[in-house]
Amino acid sequence: MTSLNIIKEIEEITSIVILMPGVQYPRVTLDVARQLSGERVCYVTLNKTFRSIDALFSKNNIRARNFFFIDAISKSFTESAPEENRCQLITPGSLTEMSLVINEVLKAGFDYIIFDSVTNLLVYQKQTDVLRFIIDLVNKTKQTQTKMIMYAVQEEEALLRKICVAVDKCITIEGTGI
Protein backbone atom coordinates (compact mmCIF):
# COMPACT_ATOMS: atom_id res chain seq x y z
CA MET A 1 0.00 0.00 0.00
CA THR A 2 1.68 3.25 -1.11
CA SER A 3 1.58 6.29 1.14
CA LEU A 4 0.19 9.67 0.32
CA ASN A 5 3.03 12.21 -0.02
CA ILE A 6 1.19 15.13 1.52
CA ILE A 7 4.02 17.65 1.26
CA LYS A 8 4.35 17.01 -2.45
CA GLU A 9 0.57 16.98 -3.02
CA ILE A 10 0.11 20.41 -1.44
CA GLU A 11 3.39 21.97 -2.54
CA GLU A 12 2.00 24.20 -5.28
CA ILE A 13 -1.43 24.89 -3.76
CA THR A 14 -2.93 26.17 -0.52
CA SER A 15 -5.78 23.82 0.37
CA ILE A 16 -6.54 20.15 0.05
CA VAL A 17 -9.27 17.77 1.20
CA ILE A 18 -8.44 14.14 1.82
CA LEU A 19 -11.55 12.00 1.43
CA MET A 20 -11.24 8.57 2.95
CA PRO A 21 -13.30 5.61 4.02
CA GLY A 22 -13.57 5.21 7.77
CA VAL A 23 -11.38 2.12 7.71
CA GLN A 24 -8.45 4.11 6.27
CA TYR A 25 -8.88 7.08 8.54
CA PRO A 26 -6.55 5.99 11.39
CA ARG A 27 -3.73 5.06 8.99
CA VAL A 28 -3.98 8.19 6.84
CA THR A 29 -4.18 10.64 9.74
CA LEU A 30 -1.13 9.13 11.41
CA ASP A 31 0.74 9.01 8.12
CA VAL A 32 0.14 12.71 7.43
CA ALA A 33 1.10 13.68 10.98
CA ARG A 34 4.31 11.68 10.66
CA GLN A 35 5.22 13.39 7.40
CA LEU A 36 4.58 16.82 8.89
CA SER A 37 6.18 16.12 12.26
CA GLY A 38 9.08 18.47 11.55
CA GLU A 39 6.82 21.34 10.48
CA ARG A 40 4.88 23.99 12.41
CA VAL A 41 1.38 22.59 12.38
CA CYS A 42 -1.86 23.70 13.94
CA TYR A 43 -4.04 20.63 14.45
CA VAL A 44 -7.74 21.32 14.83
CA THR A 45 -9.38 18.26 16.34
CA LEU A 46 -13.09 17.58 16.45
CA ASN A 47 -13.08 13.88 17.28
CA LYS A 48 -10.16 13.20 19.58
CA THR A 49 -9.14 15.08 22.67
CA PHE A 50 -5.72 16.71 22.72
CA ARG A 51 -4.55 14.22 25.32
CA SER A 52 -5.69 11.23 23.30
CA ILE A 53 -3.93 12.53 20.18
CA ASP A 54 -0.81 13.18 22.23
CA ALA A 55 -0.93 9.61 23.52
CA LEU A 56 -1.63 8.26 20.04
CA PHE A 57 1.30 10.14 18.52
CA SER A 58 3.64 8.97 21.28
CA LYS A 59 2.53 5.40 20.82
CA ASN A 60 3.28 5.69 17.09
CA ASN A 61 6.64 7.44 17.61
CA ILE A 62 5.45 10.68 16.02
CA ARG A 63 7.34 13.54 17.64
CA ALA A 64 5.09 16.50 16.99
CA ARG A 65 7.08 19.06 18.94
CA ASN A 66 5.96 21.94 16.75
CA PHE A 67 2.29 21.01 16.70
CA PHE A 68 -0.23 23.25 18.39
CA PHE A 69 -3.67 21.78 18.99
CA ILE A 70 -7.08 23.38 18.91
CA ASP A 71 -9.22 20.94 20.81
CA ALA A 72 -12.95 21.30 20.11
CA ILE A 73 -13.86 18.23 22.17
CA SER A 74 -12.51 18.36 25.69
CA LYS A 75 -14.76 21.17 26.84
CA SER A 76 -17.67 18.74 26.33
CA PHE A 77 -16.74 16.95 29.50
CA THR A 78 -13.82 18.47 31.30
CA GLU A 79 -12.95 21.77 32.84
CA SER A 80 -9.29 21.02 33.30
CA ALA A 81 -7.22 22.75 30.64
CA PRO A 82 -4.31 20.71 29.26
CA GLU A 83 -0.89 22.19 28.54
CA GLU A 84 -1.60 25.74 27.48
CA ASN A 85 1.53 26.11 25.41
CA ARG A 86 0.47 23.15 23.28
CA CYS A 87 -3.28 23.31 23.20
CA GLN A 88 -6.26 25.61 23.27
CA LEU A 89 -9.73 24.37 24.16
CA ILE A 90 -12.71 25.78 22.33
CA THR A 91 -16.44 25.27 22.74
CA PRO A 92 -17.62 22.21 20.84
CA GLY A 93 -19.72 23.14 17.86
CA SER A 94 -18.99 26.86 17.94
CA LEU A 95 -18.05 27.85 14.40
CA THR A 96 -17.66 31.46 15.48
CA GLU A 97 -15.13 30.63 18.15
CA MET A 98 -13.37 28.20 15.84
CA SER A 99 -13.19 30.84 13.13
CA LEU A 100 -11.71 33.42 15.52
CA VAL A 101 -9.10 31.04 16.83
CA ILE A 102 -8.11 29.89 13.35
CA ASN A 103 -7.75 33.54 12.29
CA GLU A 104 -5.18 33.95 15.04
CA VAL A 105 -3.45 30.77 13.91
CA LEU A 106 -3.23 32.09 10.35
CA LYS A 107 -1.65 35.33 11.63
CA ALA A 108 0.89 33.30 13.61
CA GLY A 109 2.33 31.86 10.41
CA PHE A 110 1.99 28.13 10.85
CA ASP A 111 3.20 26.03 7.94
CA TYR A 112 0.09 23.86 7.92
CA ILE A 113 -3.36 23.65 9.47
CA ILE A 114 -4.82 20.16 9.72
CA PHE A 115 -8.60 20.15 10.13
CA ASP A 116 -9.69 16.81 11.57
CA SER A 117 -12.39 16.54 10.36
CA VAL A 118 -15.01 18.25 8.26
CA THR A 119 -17.34 15.30 8.83
CA ASN A 120 -17.42 15.92 12.59
CA LEU A 121 -18.59 19.50 12.13
CA LEU A 122 -21.89 18.09 10.92
CA VAL A 123 -22.66 16.78 14.41
CA TYR A 124 -23.25 20.33 15.52
CA GLN A 125 -24.02 22.33 12.43
CA LYS A 126 -26.24 22.27 9.36
CA GLN A 127 -24.63 21.48 6.02
CA THR A 128 -25.13 25.02 4.73
CA ASP A 129 -23.34 26.50 7.74
CA VAL A 130 -20.50 24.00 7.48
CA LEU A 131 -20.04 24.73 3.80
CA ARG A 132 -20.00 28.47 4.41
CA PHE A 133 -17.48 28.03 7.21
CA ILE A 134 -15.19 25.89 5.07
CA ILE A 135 -15.32 28.23 2.08
CA ASP A 136 -14.52 31.18 4.34
CA LEU A 137 -11.63 29.29 5.87
CA VAL A 138 -10.21 28.29 2.50
CA ASN A 139 -10.41 31.87 1.23
CA LYS A 140 -8.68 33.24 4.31
CA THR A 141 -5.95 30.63 4.03
CA LYS A 142 -5.26 31.66 0.43
CA GLN A 143 -4.17 35.05 1.74
CA THR A 144 -1.47 33.56 3.94
CA GLN A 145 1.55 31.29 3.65
CA THR A 146 -0.22 28.55 5.58
CA LYS A 147 -1.48 25.44 3.85
CA MET A 148 -4.78 23.83 4.83
CA ILE A 149 -5.31 20.08 4.96
CA MET A 150 -8.84 18.89 5.70
CA TYR A 151 -9.90 15.36 6.46
CA ALA A 152 -13.32 14.03 5.52
CA VAL A 153 -14.75 10.57 5.99
CA GLN A 154 -16.77 9.51 2.99
CA GLU A 155 -20.27 10.28 4.16
CA GLU A 156 -22.48 13.26 3.26
CA GLU A 157 -21.48 13.01 -0.38
CA ALA A 158 -23.40 16.10 -1.47
CA LEU A 159 -21.59 18.34 1.00
CA LEU A 160 -18.20 16.84 0.23
CA ARG A 161 -18.69 17.45 -3.49
CA LYS A 162 -19.28 21.12 -2.78
CA ILE A 163 -16.29 21.35 -0.47
CA CYS A 164 -14.11 19.71 -3.11
CA VAL A 165 -15.04 22.50 -5.50
CA ALA A 166 -13.97 25.11 -2.93
CA VAL A 167 -10.47 23.74 -2.31
CA ASP A 168 -7.48 23.53 -4.64
CA LYS A 169 -7.29 19.75 -4.65
CA CYS A 170 -9.32 16.80 -3.50
CA ILE A 171 -7.67 13.44 -2.95
CA THR A 172 -9.75 10.31 -2.52
CA ILE A 173 -8.25 7.42 -0.62
CA GLU A 174 -9.74 4.14 -1.76
CA GLY A 175 -10.61 1.32 0.57
CA THR A 176 -7.37 -0.51 -0.10
CA GLY A 177 -5.16 2.58 -0.08
CA ILE A 178 -3.86 4.67 -2.99
Binding site: N47, T49, S52, A55, F77, P92
Partner: peptide, 25 residues
Protein backbone atom coordinates in the same frame (compact mmCIF):
# COMPACT_ATOMS: atom_id res chain seq x y z
CA UNK B 1 -22.34 20.57 25.48
CA UNK B 2 -22.99 17.29 27.21
CA UNK B 3 -20.63 18.13 30.05
CA UNK B 4 -22.73 21.17 30.99
CA UNK B 5 -25.90 19.09 31.04
CA UNK B 6 -24.39 16.21 32.99
CA UNK B 7 -23.47 18.60 35.83
CA UNK B 8 -27.18 19.24 36.29
CA UNK B 9 -28.17 15.60 36.49
CA UNK B 10 -27.93 14.37 40.04
CA UNK B 11 -28.06 10.88 41.49
CA UNK B 12 -28.52 9.07 38.19
CA UNK B 13 -25.62 6.95 36.93
CA UNK B 14 -24.46 7.97 33.45
CA UNK B 15 -22.69 5.77 30.94
CA UNK B 16 -20.97 7.74 28.21
CA UNK B 17 -21.09 6.35 24.68
CA UNK B 18 -18.71 8.00 22.35
CA UNK B 19 -17.07 7.99 18.95
CA UNK B 20 -14.74 10.61 20.39
CA UNK B 21 -11.38 9.22 21.40
CA UNK B 22 -10.20 10.11 24.86
CA UNK B 23 -7.02 9.14 26.64
CA UNK B 24 -6.94 6.52 29.41
CA UNK B 25 -6.15 9.31 31.86
Amino acid sequence: PVGEIVKQIKNIPIIYLSAVRVSDT
